[in-house]
Computed example of a mutant assay.
Amino acid sequence: MNNRIRTDIAHNARVWNYWLGGKDNYPVDRAVGDQVTSFYPSIGEVARADRAFLGRAVTRLAAGEGVRQFLDIGTGLPTADNTHEVAQRIVPDARIVYVDNDPIVLTHARALLTSSPEGVTEYVDADAHDPEKVLAGAAEVLDLSRPVAVLMLGLLNFVMDTDEARSIVRTLMAAVPSGSHLVLTHPTLDPELGGEGNVAAMAFWNENATPPITARTREEFASFFDGLELLDPGIVSCSRWGAPEAAAVAQFGAVARKP
Rank of each mutant, 00 (worst) to 15 (best):
V15C: 05
V15F: 04
W16V: 14
Y18L: 00
W19A: 03
L20E: 04
G22F: 05
G22A: 08
D24I: 09
N25D: 01
N25P: 04
N25I: 00
Y26L: 03
Y26G: 02
P27D: 09
V28L: 11
V28K: 02
R30N: 06
R30E: 10
R30V: 14
A31C: 05
V32T: 03
V32D: 00
V32R: 01
Q35D: 15
Q35L: 07
T37S: 11
T37A: 14
S38M: 14
S38F: 12
S38A: 14
P41H: 13
S42Y: 14
G44I: 03
G44A: 09
V46W: 09
D50M: 12
R51F: 09
A52S: 13
A52R: 11
F53W: 07
L54Q: 10
V58S: 08
V58H: 04
T59S: 11
R60W: 12
R60Q: 14
L61Y: 02
A62D: 01
A63N: 11
A63W: 04
R68V: 04
Q69F: 02
Q69R: 12
F70S: 00
D72K: 00
G74K: 04
G74E: 01
G74D: 02
T75A: 11
G76I: 01
P78V: 06
P78M: 07
T79K: 05
T79V: 12
A80H: 13
A80K: 13
A80M: 11
A80F: 13
A80E: 09
D81W: 07
N82F: 07
T83S: 09
T83Q: 08
T83P: 05
H84A: 07
E85I: 03
V86G: 06
Q88Y: 08
R89Q: 14
R89T: 15
V91S: 03
P92E: 06
R95V: 12
I96L: 15
I96S: 09
V97I: 04
V97E: 09
Y98R: 00
N101H: 13
I104L: 09
V105N: 09
T107F: 14
T107R: 12
H108N: 13
A109I: 14
L113Q: 13
E118I: 10
G119N: 06
T121W: 10
T121N: 07
E122V: 01
Y123M: 12
V124R: 02
V124T: 07
D125Q: 11
A126H: 06
H129D: 13
D130W: 02
P131I: 15
E132S: 15
E132M: 15
K133W: 01
L135Y: 00
L135I: 13
L135M: 05
E140F: 03
V141I: 05
V141Y: 15
D143G: 07
S145Y: 04
R146F: 00
R146M: 07
P147T: 15
A149Y: 00
A149R: 00
A149F: 01
V150L: 03
V150N: 01
V150P: 00
M152R: 09
L153Q: 10
L155A: 04
L156I: 10
F158M: 08
F158H: 13
V159Q: 10
